[in-house]
């Protein structure tokens, strides 16, 4: 046993320092030099103030903004210091109840809209921080946003198109619309 102890301890300490100190520091150093914006959170800065991250969604409930995916983080939605999904099972009555409440909120904000609600607009995302919605979910909300801002719906649809992207390299993932970027663009329109 004694002749195992020395190699065990010294190898453990050595490999801990290499993989737990040198390696993360090296990655940090190179990332800071080569990809400074990405390494520090892809922040969106306006007038010198950070107003969000390119990658993290925000909570929107006002009719003039596009709404994102429902978020199950606690205590507030889109809490980026405590990511979480709902973990509701498919048969859990709480899931159907939550979906019902969300449909009612969407209908109340846009009473004249007869179209079916896209599923991603009423189901919670996995992280609670999803920055995207499907193109269908954006299109569903376009009339409401245009009306509450008193602008041409066609202009809103153009903005949706500008902030949409297809699958990565044409194959990976889904087409999607960036909610925060779209809402920032709406706020930037001169009234």
């Amino acid at each position: 046993m004694k002749n195992l102890l020395r190699p065990a301890i010294s190898l453990f300490v050595l490999l801990s320092i290499v993989t737990g100190v040198f390696y993360p520091l090296l990655v940090t150093g190179v990332a800071r030099l080569a990809f400074p914006a990405a390494a520090s959170g892809s922040l969106i800065v306006m007038d010198g103030k950070p107003i969000g991250s390119e990658l993290i969604g925000q909570n929107f409930t006002e009719p003039k903004y596009f709404w994102g995916r429902p978020s199950a983080t606690a205590p507030q939605p889109y809490n980026a210091a405590a990511s979480s999904g709902s973990n509701l099972g498919p048969l859990n009555p709480a899931l159907a109840a939550a979906v019902k409440t969300r449909i009612e909120a969407l209908r109340a904000a846009d009473p004249g809209n007869p179209r079916p609600v896209p599923i991603d607009l009423v189901t919670a995302s996995a992280s609670g921080l999803d920055p995207h919605i499907s193109p269908a979910a954006a299109d569903y909300q376009a009339e409401r946003v245009a009306r509450s801002r008193q602008i041409d719906p066609q202009a809103v649809r153009q903005l949706i198109a500008q902030h949409s992207e297809g699958p990565d390299l044409g194959v990976f993932g889904e087409p999607r619309v960036h909610v925060l970027r779209l809402n920032l663009a709406l706020d930037a329109i001169k009234r």
């Binding site: 995916r69 999904g85 709902s86 973990n87 509701l88 498919p90 899931l95 079916p116 896209p118 599923i119 991603d120 189901t123 919670a124 995302s125 996995a126 992280s127 999803d130 995207h132 919605i133 499907s134 193109p135 269908a136 979910a137 993932g173 889904e174 087409p175 999607r176």
Partner: peptide, 17 residues
Amino acid sequence: TTALTDGNMEGKETRFG
């Protein structure tokens, strides 16, 4: 209607579908 993101979207991210 949303051909690519239909299905069970509870607990899934939009970008992954």
